[in-house]
Simulated scan of single mutants.
Amino acid sequence: MPNDQTFSPVRPSRDNVYTGSPLDRMAERRSDAEFIAASLASPQAIVAPVWRAQNLFRDQRARFYSTAEALSWESDPHRWLFLGLWDGRPVFAVDLGQHETPKSLLAEDDGDFADIRSIGGLLPAGEASVLAYARGLIHWQGRTRFCGVCGNPCVPASAGHVMHCTGCGIDHFPRSDPAVIMLVIRNDSILMGHASRFPEGMYSTLAGFVEPGESLEEAVRREVYEETGVRVGEVAYHSSQPWPFPSSLMLGFYGEGLTEAIEFRDEELTDARWFTRAMCRDPEAHGFRLPGADSIARRLIEDWLAG
C-alpha cells in the first residue's frame, strides 16, 4: 500500500517513568569525606535498601529507612552510596546483596523486595527515579569489581560513584549505553515485533544499541532494516528514559516507514507485524499484548494512539 499520509512527529504527553528525579546529586561533594559523614549522621537522612537488583516496597510505595536503622544491617562503608539531596534530606542506597535472607533484617511488616519494573509505573515519579538510580548504581559497582585495564581489584570511592583500581590507579565511572527505541509508522499502522525473551503474545517497538561512529538517526534506520527489512525515512525524536536494567539510556523516536514488506534479516525477532490503531486500542481482542506500562515503548504507542 502506498504511504499516503504525511509523516509528522508526535509530542510526549507526559514524563516517562523513572524520569523527573527530585535529587540534587551534589556531584561536587561526593569526595568530601566530612560532608558525607555529616550527611550519614543527619537525622533527616533516608536510605533505600537494594538486595540483588531488587528494591523494597510496602503497599506499592518505596520503603525508606533512617541511617540509624540501616547501619545496624550493614556497617561496611563500601556498601553505602550517596545519591544526593531530596528537598535538603540526604539520600543513600545500601547494598544488602551479601545477605542470603535480607528479610530477616527487617520487621515483619516492612514490605517485600521486588523488581521495580513490576511496580514502577504505580510509584510517584520521585520514588521511581530514586529507586532506579540506586539499583543501577549498585549493579554497576558489582560489575566493576576488577579493573578492565590491568585486572586488579577495584574499590569504591567518591561515595560510590567511582571504582578505583588498586593496581594501575585508573578510576572507572558509571556508564549508560545509549539505545534507540523506535515506533515505525506507515499510514495508520505501526510496526512491532516479538522477541523470544518477551512474554508470550507481547509485541513491542523495535530497539537496539547505538554503534560506534553512528548518529542516533542512523541507528534507528539500521536497526529497523536489520531486524525487519523495512526501510525508514524521516526520524523524529520523542523523549528519553533511563533504563538501569541494567545500564541503558533509551532514546525514543518515531520513524517514517517507507516500505511495508517484512523480511527477517537476523535472529533478533521471532515475529514482526503491522498493527492498526483499532488493533492497538483493543490488543486482547486481537490476540496480543502491549509492552509494560512503565516502558518508553508503551509511551510511544500511547502517544501515537492519542495523536
Rank of each mutant, 00 (worst) to 15 (best):
A107G: 15
F275A: 07
S176M: 06
T259P: 02
A33V: 05
A134T: 05
T101Y: 07
S176L: 08
R117Q: 14
I36W: 01
S31Q: 04
L191W: 01
L251P: 04
P212S: 08
H161N: 10
L71P: 01
G84A: 01
C280K: 05
E200I: 06
I181W: 00
R25Y: 11
V47M: 06
P212I: 10
W304R: 03
R52Q: 12
R52I: 00
P242C: 06
G208F: 00
I170Q: 15
W86D: 10
T166R: 13
E211I: 01
S215Y: 08
P291Y: 05
L81G: 00
H172W: 13
F82I: 11
F173N: 04
T276I: 02
V17Y: 02
E234G: 03
R298P: 07
A132E: 12
A93L: 05
N3M: 06
C147P: 02
H286E: 12
E108C: 01
E284V: 02
L105R: 10
A48S: 15
W51M: 02
T144F: 04
N16P: 00
F253G: 12
V47K: 01
V232W: 07
M250F: 15
L300R: 02
V149Q: 08
R11Y: 13
T144S: 13
R14S: 09
R79H: 12
I119K: 03
V162R: 12
R143I: 10
Q60R: 08
P102K: 02
L269A: 09
G120T: 06
Y225E: 12
P49D: 10
F64Y: 15
G201K: 04
D112K: 05
P49R: 11
G193D: 10
E256K: 00
R222P: 12
T19Y: 02
C165Q: 05
W73K: 10
T276H: 00
G151E: 06
E34I: 13
E200H: 06
